[in-house]
Design a protein around this nucleic acid. Structure first.
Lengths: 194, 194
DNA sequence: AGAGAATTTGAGGATACCCTCAAGTTGAGG
DNA sequence: CCTCAACTTGAGGGTATCCTCAAATTCTCT
């Protein structure tokens, strides 16, 4: 992509790919704090090689982040394309949480602190802005309570992420129930237009 | 309390108390995974002494648990005594979460997995049953949605505990907002009596 | 006070994970 | 095929925490 990207040697490129695949797996299974040695082991390379390619845990995590963001983008686009703004919001939330439920690493990242650098962070900001549009649209339609703020979305994400963490192994649908309860609290009280 | 409790030597009893006080502090500040050596240090005893009195982290945690439960009992009693069942439920939830917000250890315990042994666990069960009464009462009053189950309370606790964890240092009122949104989803839809 | 049991102590071994770097291996161009 | 820069390797030092145990201390009782 950028200008300064030197072409990797063939074996190095192969190892990098194996590392990305392993990281996707391991972060997905064990969350953001999974031991890096496990990732190296599963990629079939030494820990040193992992550090060659990705000097920090965050660098590795960010390298696999774009994929997740792409999935999220699809969710956002489809939500914005929904003719029914309320339904758009609902499907956005369901899509977002379904992604988190599939991926502990993403769930952790999103739950704990999107402390990501530059690029990834910018992408997050963009996603957050688009989410703001979804919210705004639903508010204008009169179906979302007017006092719902984007910050409430962050809170909701925190909340549901923990529900996912605790229940995903034993009762994987719990987060849907939680979201339903929340959504019932998000509907606008009475009338439809001002 | 029990029959087999040997009387402790004076210094041992003093140390035990200091350890309990330190544990309360440290678990409260740093959560359930706070280093035990920090507790020993703050109690002014050696790590060995800590292990003499409490062979495991859980033993120590459970030793300070009754106090929290007592506080919770007060919250529950006051909720059950409230003439307005809905208001009772609300004050129960607010009281519970306020306790969690004051104490990271309690918040962790309640959030993650109440993996406590025997006694403490039984007390939890009792508390949970009383919570069931609060729920039942609110349902019968027609103000709480009839499909709300005690399991939903667990989910709610998970959810809010994470909100507390993430926001307590920067925006300590966030959990109240979260609870408000939830509560709006918990009200019964329309009519009041069947 | 003196004896003996109860209690404390803290150095140190064990574990888990982090990260580095000197030495060895390998791919790519000549 | 040969060379050398690129890449890989994994032992090992660092940190943080856990937990143990033999020796030292302190309480209690007579």
């Amino acid at each position: 992509m950028a200008a300064g990207t030197k072409p990797l040697r063939a074996d190095a490129a192969r190892n990098r790919d194996k590392l990305l695949a392993a990281a996707t797996q391991v972060f997905g299974e064990r969350g953001m704090n999974a031991p890096l040695e496990e990732i190296a082991r599963r990629a079939g390379v030494s820990i040193g090689t992992l550090y060659n390619h990705f000097p920090t845990r965050d660098a590795l995590f960010e390298a696999i982040f774009p994929d997740r963001l792409a999935a999220l983008d699809r969710v956002i686009d489809s939500a914005l394309a929904d003719p029914d703004p309320w339904h758009g919001l609902v499907s956005f939330l369901e899509g977002l949480f379904a992604l988190q439920a599939q991926d502990r690493g993403l769930n952790d990242a999103v739950a704990a602190q999107w402390r990501l650098t530059a690029e990834a962070s910018a992408a997050c900001t963009r996603g957050f802005e688009q989410a703001g549009q979804i919210i705004e649209r639903a508010k204008r339609s009169g179906r979302l309570r007017p006092d719902f703020e984007p910050q409430d979305l962050v809170t909701l994400v925190w909340a549901v992420s923990q529900v996912i963490r605790e229940s995903i192994d034993t009762a994987p649908d719990t987060w849907r129930r939680c979201l339903d309860l929340f959504l019932d609290g998000l509907r606008a009280p009475e009338s439809s237009t001002t």
